[in-house]
């Protein structure tokens, strides 16, 4: 272990000291004859103890950002810093140390857990591996984490295997495992979209409680605007790798000003505000995947707003130049309409 790594290791104390910062981050996937821009000059910061939601459809680049932030992939351009780490230039050993501080929660609690491992083992493993606790210490810590995520009574759950748990319990186990090494940042990729509506609130409340009590930062990736409103402090709306709107969640969701955010909001099942039928029948594009892949390249080459082909308010200008984010720190939009 190098001196620098040891230095980093000794410094880790209670969470809540590091700020995540993305500066002009771009990611381009090169394919045969075409390239796909999954992130385009993305800038944002996550303060300690804050929850930032990245919202958008599949293909908006939200999961790509998660992969860049956790160091699974490297950005094509730009810088990602977290405390003293320069995430884009970490080597594999440093990366392992970094991941102690940045943990992920995935969408599918069925495939994220080893079916052979008991609940207790799943939680103890990261404790022993990352925090180097002894068997007895890890066991004790694991019990306290289990009560945090309400897998209680502990004696009843500790020896269960994933198939003996319900979907909600499984996702709580995944969260328990993620918070075990006391990370500073949790990247949660659609953590509730596979769960029943009736237990979503429970898991969202748990995430909220954890960040309050442990002062962790959370990046919450979702396509569900309602849960973003409920959980997040700040919302960043992504479309094909571009940030099209951002701001405090109350502000963005109550007064959306980008047509894409409006489309996302309209799509939320909302029995309390019946929609005008057929209103949203047109916007979804009937193009093949090939075309979909080709389209964003144009946007990246400076040929216009990425949303222009689907936008109901499209103007000539939108096809020739990319709008930049304007507004104050509470609410910014990248649209020529404003």
């Amino acid at each position: 272990m190098s001196l620098r790594e040891q230095g980093l290791q000794n410094k880790q104390t209670a969470p809540g000291r590091y700020v995540l910062e993305l500066k002009d981050v771009s990611k381009v996937y090169e394919g045969r004859g075409h390239s796909t821009v999954a992130a385009y000059k993305v800038n944002f910061t996550v303060e300690p103890g804050k929850i930032v939601a990245l919202v958008g459809e599949s293909g908006s680049g939200k999961s790509t950002l998660a992969r860049l932030i956790t160091g699974i992939e490297k950005p094509t351009e730009g810088r990602i810093t977290f405390g003293e780490w320069h995430v884009e230039s970490l080597k594999s050993r440093q990366l392992r140390n970094y991941r102690k501080h940045v943990q992920m929660v995935f969408q599918d609690p069925f495939s994220a857990l080893n079916p052979q491992n008991t609940v207790l083992h799943s939680i103890m493993r990261p404790l022993r591996r990352h925090l180097r606790l002894s068997e007895a210490e890890a066991r004790e810590r694991a019990f306290s984490i289990m009560s945090t995520v309400r897998l209680t009574p502990v004696e009843q759950f500790m020896n269960k295997k994933p198939h003996q748990l319900s979907g909600g319990q499984r996702q709580r186990l995944v969260i328990a495992r993620a918070i075990a090494p006391e990370p500073e940042l949790i990247v949660a990729d659609e953590p509730v979209s596979m769960l029943d509506v009736s237990i979503r609130a429970d898991v969202l409340n748990l995430i909220d409680e954890i960040r309050r009590t442990r002062n962790m930062s959370v990046i919450y990736i979702t396509h569900d605007m309602l849960s973003a409103r409920v959980l997040a402090d700040e919302v960043i709306v992504l479309y094909r790798g571009h940030i099209v709107e951002r701001g405090t969640s109350d502000e963005v969701l109550r007064n959306p000003s980008h047509p894409y955010t409006e489309l996302l909001l309209e799509s939320v099942p909302n029995p309390f505000e019946p929609k005008v039928r057929t209103a949203s029948r047109a916007p979804e594009v009937s193009i093949t995947r090939k075309q979909a892949l080709v389209a964003p390249v144009k946007g990246a080459a400076g040929q216009g707003c990425p949303f222009a082909p689907r936008c109901p308010h499209v103007m000539d200008r939108c096809r020739t130049s990319i709008p930049s984010l304007t507004g104050d720190s509470r609410h910014q939009t990248a649209c020529f309409k404003n």
């Binding site: 319900s166 509506v197 009736s198 237990i199 979503r200 609130a201 309602l226 909001l265 309390f272």
Partner: peptide, 21 residues
């Protein structure tokens, strides 16, 4: 079940779940 939904544009939004399984 209806309590698990809310209007995302409402002034105050809170979600409730259903305890137990």
């Amino acid at each position: 079940l209806l309590g698990c939904y809310a209007n995302p544009r409402a002034e105050h939004v809170s979600l409730s779940g259903i305890p137990g399984s």
